[in-house]
């Protein structure tokens, strides 16, 4: 028996469970099943569990107690929440200023290179290949605040005195952003480079005929053509920076004096730092609030940019 059927006839027929099976629905389901199971166990399950836990008081060992919105109220009354939100916004703003234009600029410059493009791409992508924890530990060595620390030695060559880097309330956050930018730029550069390949060469040819310089070509041809990708990358960056955890956790633990305590680090602290029973309720309550906020932000962003985006 074969399954060959006229497409037009299939489209007209009413869909019933029987036709669904006949059309290979069962096969599709069987192939999707492992993924559905994995998502259920490792993604959706924990998400649902977190939402439930945000209304409970539990230490994971004794029976959980339902406490209504108490966890949410406790989080909103925590004086550290304001600090964490401001720090996260500060990180996001710095990351936007430092981390957003650099990959675009690098990609545009690299796309103009005639020879050895592959080498530049590889060099740009190299930091992404370094495991994040290793990268942070490496930068921790660079940020050694003593006069013979790596970066301080380099600064010494140009007559600048040793900087405290991570040991200072003012410099800790910018130090984190520098490393985060270094670590993430490679991935963005590759995406922008790929998008640049899709720009029709005729546009550049036309611009050249009109006598446009490299900067005018970048401004009037490249950037408008990259608009869609830029919008997506921007929202991805905002979402990523709002959830920044690795750098403050590994570099500073949120210090000095909570100057690098971010929202996600605060969630971690609720759950683990003072643990011995852990305030998992407050941790999940803040997680739920953050998730709702980011979902709303993404929706508003796409509504606002929908008409500008080419995609």
């Amino acid at each position: 028996m074969t399954t060959t059927q006229a497409p037009a006839a299939t489209a007209r027929r009413r869909r019933t469970p029987r036709t669904w099976v006949k059309n290979g629905g069962l096969t599709a389901l069987a192939f999707a099943l492992p993924m559905i199971l994995i998502f259920t166990v490792f993604s959706w399950g924990p998400i649902v569990r977190s939402v439930v836990m945000s209304f409970q008081k539990t230490n994971l060992l004794q029976p959980a107690e339902f406490v209504g919105f108490d966890n949410f109220i406790a989080v909103l009354n925590d004086p550290l929440l304001g600090t964490a939100v401001l720090n996260t916004l500060y990180f996001a703003a710095l990351a936007l200023v430092m981390g957003f234009p650099i990959p675009i600029l690098m990609a545009v410059l690299m796309s103009e290179v005639r020879r050895g493009k592959g080498i530049y791409s590889a060099l740009a992508y190299l930091p992404v290949v370094v495991p994040p924890v290793v990268a942070v530990l490496l930068w921790k060595v660079f940020y050694d605040a003593s006069p013979n620390g790596v970066l301080n030695t380099v600064l010494g060559w140009v007559g600048i005195g040793p900087q405290p880097w991570l040991q200072s309330q003012a410099q800790a956050m910018p130090s984190l952003v520098i490393e985060a930018t270094w670590a993430a730029a490679g991935g963005s550069i590759i995406i922008y480079l790929a998008a640049l390949l899709a720009v029709p060469p005729e546009l550049y040819d036309a611009a050249e005929v009109d006598g446009a310089s490299i900067w005018r070509k970048a401004w009037h041809v490249t950037l408008p053509q990259l608009r869609g990708v830029i919008f997506v990358m921007l929202i991805l960056q905002i979402l990523a920076t709002a959830q920044i955890f690795l750098e403050p956790f590994l570099f500073t633990g949120g210090g000095p004096v909570n100057s690098t305590t971010t929202v996600l680090l605060l969630i971690y602290r609720y759950a683990f730092q003072n643990s011995l029973g852990g305030n998992y309720g407050m941790a999940t309550a803040l997680s739920v609030m953050l998730a709702i906020f980011l979902a709303l932000l993404s929706w508003i962003y796409f509504r606002l940019t929908a008409r500008w985006s080419t995609s």
């Binding site: 683990f272 730092q273 643990s275 852990g278």
Partner: peptide, 9 residues
């Protein structure tokens, strides 16, 4: 301390 409760559970 941070991982104790989770390891126990």
């Amino acid at each position: 301390g941070p991982t104790f409760a989770v390891q126990l559970a």
